[in-house]
Design a binder for these strands. Structure first.
Lengths: 123, 123
DNA sequence: CAGTTTCCTGGCCATCCGGCCAGTTTCGCA
DNA sequence: TGCGAAACTGGCCGGATGGCCAGGAAACTG
């Protein structure tokens, strides 16, 4: 090894907690081979730590609701979801209704967005 | 300073590129005050670097389409979007149609999911 | 056994969505 | 000056969506 051709790894920081951000910046700033990204600079990797206050406890979703939610996130219509889960469209609507209620959403798009924000599903 | 009370910051790695992951693991593993998370361990922050191949160039969206997309991600209906942007519902539908087309989505929920995945919008 | 939860199904209906057609204006660029 | 892209508006319509009502079957728990 020891090629001086190896470029520094540029790291960006996206930390909600100011104290943690400061400690990380100090620690990482002094590592050889690493560099913190300047404002607007494209980084090779990003250090993220989102404020966990957003997700107190996992919203209590039943298994079936999670099934439906996952398919919703795929953009599936109620009819498609019904076919894939082998249940009736009415039942799908029922679960969707519960999801809208539990996720405090106004529609399926909102529900998916909320769920993604809280980490209930992975986009 | 020199309080041994200061806990180590636990970092998790989520790097698609194995080479980059290896370099980062080596660099970060030897930093005092830092520790890499064990499997399944809860980390204070996560270093992420998603494979950029997914998003070759930002999909060419017009300003108006971005406006509509942002409101869609908020779960707004076409009517709401129309009111907020002070345009007619027909125009909203027009832009939504373009978005579905450009984002290769089957519906507004799918469009928001795709856009979020590509980083076009921030959830 | 009774009660609760979860999952499932049906009908009815107002609204929303998205695709189709058509048109106008405004802007920048060749 | 003419041309295209972007933005905007309208009507029409089939299908999707979500809210409301009602019910039933299975499993778990006190």
């Amino acid at each position: 090894m020891s090629e001086d051709t190896t470029p520094e790894i540029v790291l960006a920081l996206e930390i909600d907690d100011p104290a943690l951000a400061d400690r990380l910046a100090t620690l990482l700033g002094s590592v050889a081979g690493l560099r913190l990204a300047a404002a607007g600079e494209t980084a090779a990797a990003t250090v993220v730590a989102r404020d966990p206050r957003v997700m107190p406890e996992d919203i209590a979703l039943t298994q079936r609701e999670l099934d439906v939610l996952a398919l919703m996130a795929e953009g599936a219509s109620n009819k498609m979801i019904a076919r894939r889960l082998d249940i009736s469209v009415h039942t799908v609507k029922f679960h969707v209704g519960s999801l809208l209620d539990k996720l405090d959403a106004t529609g399926r798009t909102d529900a998916v967005a909320h769920a993604a924000r809280r980490g209930v599903i992975e986009l």
